[in-house]
Design a protein around this nucleic acid. Structure first.
Length: 861
RNA sequence: GCCGGGGUGGCGAAACAGGUAUACGCAGCAGACUCAAAAUCUGCCGGGGGUAACCCCAUGUCGGUUCGAUUCCGACCCUCGGCACCA
């Protein structure tokens, strides 16, 4: 079929997508012995429409998949839906639609969007985490882990909205108040199920060393998050109850002799005990209970404390130390209590200054032997003990060992390893999630649902109203009989954290129809060879998925220790923000598509006006596309107007995958222009292609152009291996520029070769147009089956090369030398260059540095 | 507050292992085509000086290592991501 005269993306894309569909081009089949490549992008939350972040994420994944396909690998690229979660409940409240209905219709729409982008996805493996076929295995594994002791129950802290009588997510707490009610939020302790991820801390930490396909920054973040610290658990005896000991953990046992007070969290039993007959303290603890539970909030709040009036005994000196309650001590970390050494800890120092507590220096640091205000970093350094009695003169390690030994002798301490990592609380007091398969029986207590009764199906018709979990009012779900005694009982209404769903979906893709959680196919495809997703998931999701994989391996379900071999963390898509500020200080945000930007004659942005009223708006910064700033640009407009290939080329060209990408309409037009030029060039040249092989009498300029094409190809092939797709696109643009300028003897042959290289190189990024041109120009039927282009070394050969000449590191001239020139000849040529002569005359040449093929640096004095 | 990134022309960016800073594109300016506009094509395009050859300055700021630093080291400033119930 002849090529159309002009480029019509919608026609081309529809046609090519239909061919892929017909040929089942992306169906992945296990094939023993063939090298597989499992390319996975983080699955989307079905929020309604694709956003730019999705388009970017999945384009990167698709370019990698197609590249690996072109290299001959057996590629699996699946897709599915992270379908449980909070936004569906919010939509239900706003529109009165059940979360299930909202979610399924979003999935339908977003699936057509993904298909229109031409991703090489094996749709036969699609899954949604809200389907019982998927979440039954969450429940099944939960029960296995409960037996194993990895799942257990304890209390945990939640945000409580006292007006709506409901638990709030951190996101729903704004400045310490409930987002709907405006009520001051309180912390509340409730019973929850936990996963003992800390039991796996050592393994999760150690195996990071093997993840050399991960960005170093992500490994560092995980390492710090796990936070292994070696220290000493120290007991402070007290008389509050008989034989009582208050335990604290410290990494600085060498400073124990400098402890001047001890502080506990507001929720600590000793704090609650002390408050019994102390109204002021009760009020203070009440105050500590207000505000959100997030670590950022706690760490940035003003440090406050109050004395309990109680005291504990220093385990080594027998001194009496005051016991304080402090809002900076976290109940969830360690023992919920700390020993305070104001002389050598910044936070303790500030606290001691504020409340006039004694400061006792016990370490000689580079700042000296005292600790005067203001605080200096040096006070926290390791050093030699002073003012510490028998420990004087010991260094850090010796002091820690000696003190730990003495504590141990008194049964008041020992060396201990602790972790910053906390066990994973998976209970959520929400409707739209996997039901936790437990039954509450008044006689038997909490009883697991028998395996044969799985799945516990979530009723899909409920509409949450903001006042707690609707399952609590839904008798058909709630009421049941106890599997143990047969008496009347009620189901657990808490559901699982959605991180559970995303912790193993990549395993289910390998065998979506398996009658068990996973089957043997998982061992063919795993591990994921390349995982692509946002950097914001660097810690939680990736850590939970690693943990889950290790647990499943222990149960004999999979063979791999680690799920993701290589990880690519893509940057955010950001866009300009525009706003007007009302008199009450509130900002009204305007979408970039509704704003006209004025520039000066240098192209600098000077002002912006709103299209609807022509009045000026304020220009904010570049921020992550988000509803809150109304700066999201709908990718559908872009796809409708320019086609999928333009959207893909722009996305890949605008920035390297790991950096944030700034959204500009004009850049999109540039990408579209490039594809139009490519099409026009191909149509124009169609008749002259495949005309002749390159003859020996080709013009020098034609050979130079061929050299340029192969040099550009050489760089582009390297850029593909390191997934730097912006420069791959730039290489394709350069090739088209070079081909467009070609003329003379042999031009036809180079044009034919060059275009075939260009099409194949660009095909992973712009698969539709390159396929259409590939077949339309009769290079072949299916570009997916074409061999990956290779550099012809003979094309790169050149008789003469240009060297840069520097004098003392500054560029002073250029010289041409033959490719085989020796060092002496190069030096000679460099020294005799005219401008170089001017800069070395009257000076002594000290040495000459020759970097072969690149430059000469003449050092003079 | 703690942990981890980023900062290069008017803008997005390039420079893979310390070796020509600004490739490729956008915007802008000039020209061609057109009755005109759009589209398309061609040329120019970091700042300053100079008729020119060429020179000086410039990769967030300050300092260091080196024949040579966007790249390595130290301090600082700004900015973004995460902080366990957003996903």
């Amino acid at each position: 079929m002849a090529l159309q005269e002009s480029y019509t993306p919608s026609q081309v894309e529809e046609k090519v997508q239909a061919e892929w569909e017909k040929n089942q081009s992306f169906l992945a089949v296990e094939e023993a012995g063939r090298e597989k490549f499992y390319c996975l992008s983080m699955f989307p939350y079905p929020s309604g429409r694709l956003h730019m972040g999705h388009v970017r994420n999945y384009t990167i994944g698709d370019v990698i998949s197609r590249y690996q396909h072109m290299l001959g690998k057996n590629v699996l690229q699946p897709m599915g839906w992270d379908a449980f979660g909070l936004p569906a409940e919010n939509a239900a409240m706003n529109h009165g639609v059940p979360p299930a209905q909202w979610t399924y219709s979003n999935i339908d729409y977003m699936k057509t969007q993904l298909k229109s982008l031409g991703f090489a996805i094996d749709w036969s493996r699609e899954l949604a985490t809200c389907s019982p076929e998927y979440y039954r295995w969450n429940q099944w594994l939960f029960l296995r882990l409960l037996e194993k002791g990895v799942v257990y129950q304890k209390t945990g802290t939640v945000n409580w909205d006292p007006v709506d009588q409901t638990v709030l997510a951190n996101e729903q707490v704004i400045d310490g108040r409930g987002w709907r009610t405006g009520a001051l939020v309180e912390k509340r302790e409730i019973p929850m199920y936990y996963m003992a991820i800390t039991e796996y801390a050592e393994e999760l930490l150690a195996d990071l060393a093997d993840l050399d396909g991960w960005p170093e920054q992500v490994r560092t973040m995980q390492r710090n998050w796990i936070g292994k610290s070696q220290g000493v658990r120290v007991g402070f005896p007290h008389q509050i109850d008989a034989g009582g000991v208050l335990w604290v953990f410290t990494t600085r046992a060498d400073t124990l002799m400098g402890a001047t007070y001890v502080a506990v969290a507001a929720e600590h039993p000793l704090a609650l005990y002390a408050a019994q007959n102390n109204p002021a303290l009760t009020q203070f603890i009440e105050e500590c209970r207000r505000g959100g539970m997030s670590e950022a909030e706690i760490a940035t709040q003003e440090k406050k404390g109050m004395a309990t009036g109680l005291s504990v005994t220093h385990p080594l000196t027998g001194e009496s130390l005051p016991l304080w309650v402090a809002n900076y001590v976290l109940m969830g970390y360690g023992d919920g209590a700390v020993m305070a050494v104001p002389a050598h800890d910044e936070r303790d120092f500030a606290f001691a200054q504020q409340y006039r507590l004694p400061i006792k220096p016990v370490i000689r640091s580079s700042a000296g032997e005292t600790t005067p205000a203001p605080w200096q970093e040096a006070y926290a350094e390791h050093g030699v003990c002073i003012n510490s009695g028998k420990y004087d003169g010991l260094d850090f390690a010796a002091a820690v060992s000696a003190i730990a030994a003495d504590l141990q002798a008194k049964n008041l301490g020992e060396k201990k390893t602790t972790w910053r990592l906390r066990d994973w609380g998976i209970s959520r007091q929400r409707y739209w999630g996997t039901p936790i398969p437990m039954i509450k029986c008044p006689t038997c207590g909490d009883v697991p649902v028998p395996e044969e009764d799985l799945p516990v199906i979530l009723p899909e018709g409920c509409v949450p109203d903001g006042s707690g979990n609707p399952l609590k009012k839904y008798a058909a779900f709630l009421d049941c009989s106890c599997p143990r005694c047969g008496g009347k009982a009620q189901r657990e209404t808490d559901t699982m954290d959605t991180f559970v769903d995303s912790s193993w979906y990549f395993l289910r893709y390998t065998c979506p129809d398996a009658g068990s959680m996973v089957d043997e196919r998982a061992n063919y495809w795993m591990p994921v060879d390349q995982y692509i997703g946002g950097i914001e998931h660097a810690i939680l999701h990736l850590l939970y998925a690693r943990f889950w994989t290790k647990v499943m391996r222990e149960l004999g379900l999979v063979d791999v220790r680690e799920p993701f071999r290589h990880l690519l963390t893509q940057g955010m898509v950001v866009a300009p923000t525009f706003y007007r500020q009302a008199e009450d200080g509130r900002k009204q945000w305007f979408n970039p598509v509704d704003v006209e930007v004025a520039t000066d004659d240098k192209g600098r942005t000077v002002s912006a006006t709103l299209n609807t009223d022509g009045q000026p708006v304020m220009i904010g910064g570049m921020e992550k596309m988000a509803k809150s700033k109304n700066n999201g640009v709908d990718p559908q407009t872009l796809i409708d107007q320019y086609g999928a290939d333009t959207a893909r080329v722009f996305m890949m060209f605008a920035a390297p995958p790991e950096q944030s990408l700034e959204w500009h309409d004009t850049g999109v037009e540039g990408a579209h222009r490039f594809l139009k030029r490519l099409w026009a060039f191909a149509v124009d040249q169609a008749a002259g292609l495949h005309a002749a092989d390159l003859q020996a009498d080709a013009d020098e300029a034609v050979l130079a152009a061929r050299r340029e094409i192969h040099q550009t190809l050489q760089q582009a092939l390297i850029d593909f291996t390191r997934y730097q797709f912006n420069t791959v696109v730039s290489a394709a643009m350069k090739m088209l520029n070079t081909l467009g300028r070609l003329s003379g003897q042999g031009a036809d042959a180079v044009r034919s070769e060059g275009l075939s290289i260009l099409l194949r190189l660009l095909s992973p990024v712009a698969p539709h147009i390159t396929q259409e041109l590939w077949s339309g120009l009769h290079y072949g039927v299916d570009i997916l089956q074409a061999p990956w282009p290779q550099v012809d070394e003979t094309a790169l050969k050149c008789d003469s090369i240009e060297l840069v000449v520097q004098v003392n590191g500054k560029l002073r001239g250029k010289v041409a030398v033959t490719a085989d020139a020796d060092k002496a000849a190069i030096e000679q040529a460099a020294l005799s260059e005219e401008n170089v002569q001017r800069f070395i005359s009257g000076q002594t040449v000290v040495k000459i540095i020759v970097v072969p093929g690149k430059l000469v640096n003449v050092v003079v004095r």
